[in-house]
Design a protein around this nucleic acid. Sequence first.
DNA 1: GCTCAGATGCAACCGAGTTGCAAGAGCGGC
DNA 2: GCCGCTCTTGCAACTCGGTTGCATCTGAGC
Lengths: 148, 148
Amino acid sequence: MPDFSLPDETAVAALAERIRATGARATPARIRVLELLTAAPAPLSHQDIEGALGAASLDRVTLYRVLDWLVESGLAVKRADERRVWRFTLAAGGAHHGHVHFRCETCGRVFCLDAPAPRPPRLPGGFTLARAELDLAGRCAECNAGNV
Amino acid sequence: MPDFSLPDETAVAALAERIRATGARATPARIRVLELLTAAPAPLSHQDIEGALGAASLDRVTLYRVLDWLVESGLAVKRADERRVWRFTLAAGGAHHGHVHFRCETCGRVFCLDAPAPRPPRLPGGFTLARAELDLAGRCAECNAGNV
DNA sequence: GCTCAGATGCAACCGAGTTGCAAGAGCGGC
DNA sequence: GCCGCTCTTGCAACTCGGTTGCATCTGAGC
């Protein structure tokens, strides 16, 4: 489990500034969610975030709206995983696109790999490519070790 | 729209035989769905299949069960697409794995490309790979031409 | 401090997928 | 050809992730 503790004052201020830069209001809900995504080593599902927020939990709907706003404003990317749930990641200046995800079929976690983006194949005539993503699935180190 | 008309007698018999080979009963529902998947040029969603069955439509639940049975018996593969709906494809002797899909972001259709399977990157220590799939998204030729 | 558009929370809704159960129908045995 | 067992189907009701409508609250510009 990653460290989801509150960041220090200056970090919060920086996040708030980043939010205001998009023209939106820097509300606690947005700061909190953005902070979680910043700290997360892998794409988080709605449920992950709800769990991580714990006591400081937001309304279910508010969380959906905050996440949608993040995607709309370009701060995050969302993607349906193999289990049909949305997973959110920081956009990281658009650099997240084209990078590689590994999903553990045992524990369900998703990892971002450092591997280079896959080279897209030649498309049939008339087709235009917007995005390419390589999805890997298997067992993560932890599950292999624990033999869960 | 692909041709979803009924196959001839011998084709039906062959499909029934293939179903019985798994130890299950060759029911009209299974034959019909298997036939649709055989004729389909790209992964079909539950909705696609329901629509294609038209008047000869099955119960929603039965269709889910037939599809799950197909996957369980190894005749088909299922996969959640970008829009969070399941898509089903014939397993084609396992050859479908590792091949490349293109999803049109305008019309939502999914195409199977002839491109070779992507070369999987090196995984972190302890990870084991079971499947790798390259997902492409953009606009298909038809949508580009029609400028829908 | 005051104001107001934008953000939040609540309740109700929607659609995809699942479960339980009774009725129906393949298919093997006679 | 008929019978019966067991698998399959259809119906109804449910669960769960996600969305919509609306009243209330609040960040931030004045």
